[in-house]
Computed example of a mutant assay.
Amino acid sequence: MATCRADPFIEHLLELMGPLAARIGPVTAKRMFGGHGLFYDGLMFALVSGGTCYLKADDATRGKFDAEGSAPFRYHSARREVTMRHYLSLPPAALESPAAMTPWARLAVEAALRLGNA
């Protein structure tokens, strides 16, 4: 049976999210659409594509992402470019430490919970 190699960037993200996961429960990664989704309690709160992590955002959190210059996730379909405004790029400083990542990951999980319960 072939084994799947771990993606170092995904492993790094999961490590950075470790302290949050220790408080709220497991955070998992799943391959999808040429990238990965990050999940908490069955809800996708982040997607990783092309070496960039995009976190779930909603009306309550979008302003914080905008203040950091975050960009929405975009991809090309057969007919056009699609923009997913509920997934915004992770501020680069969040990749530096678990302490820097935790507030951003928490915002994304909270947004996913709000949108999932809407």
Rank of each mutant, 00 (worst) to 15 (best):
L13M: 03
Y75G: 05
A67E: 11
R62I: 06
C53N: 00
A46P: 00
G34L: 14
L16F: 11
A105D: 02
A100N: 14
L88I: 01
P98A: 05
R23H: 10
G50C: 04
M44N: 05
S70N: 04
L43A: 10
A112S: 10
D41H: 12
Y40W: 13
P72W: 05
P92H: 02
F39I: 09
F45R: 05
G63L: 08
A46Q: 06
S49L: 07
A105Q: 00
V82Q: 15
V48D: 02
H76A: 15
R74V: 15
L16R: 06
E110A: 12
G69T: 04
M1G: 14
M17P: 02
A111R: 02
K56M: 09
F73S: 01
L113M: 13
G18K: 09
T52Q: 13
I24Q: 13
A93F: 13
R106E: 09
L16M: 05
D41N: 12
Y87T: 03
F9A: 05
L43P: 11
L13N: 02
E96V: 06
L55G: 01
S97F: 04
V82C: 12
A99V: 06
E96P: 14
M84A: 12
S77V: 13
G37M: 15
V109F: 13
M84G: 08
D66K: 07
L13W: 08
G18I: 10
V27L: 13
A93V: 10
A108R: 02
R85L: 09
P26V: 15
G69E: 11
G116I: 09
P98C: 02
M84L: 15
G69Y: 09
G116T: 07
M101T: 06
T102N: 07
I24M: 05
G37D: 08
L95E: 09
T3F: 13
A111E: 08
A22M: 15
P8F: 03
T52P: 09
L38V: 00
G25F: 06
P91Q: 07
A21C: 01
T52W: 04
A22K: 12
A71P: 05
D7W: 12
S70E: 03
P98L: 08
Y54T: 03
A6C: 06
L90K: 00
L47I: 04
C4I: 15
F45A: 00
P26D: 08
E96H: 05
K64F: 11
S77H: 09
W104Y: 02
A93C: 11
G51N: 04
R23P: 01
K30V: 14
H86F: 09
G18W: 11
K56N: 03
M84F: 07
F9L: 05
R74F: 07
R80Q: 13
R79T: 15
C53S: 00
R80T: 11
L107V: 04
Y40V: 02
K30N: 08
E68G: 04
A57D: 07
R79K: 14
L47D: 00
T52H: 12
R31T: 15
Y87R: 03
M101H: 02
T28V: 01
D41Y: 08
A2W: 13
H36P: 08
R5Y: 10
A46K: 06
K30T: 12
D58T: 13
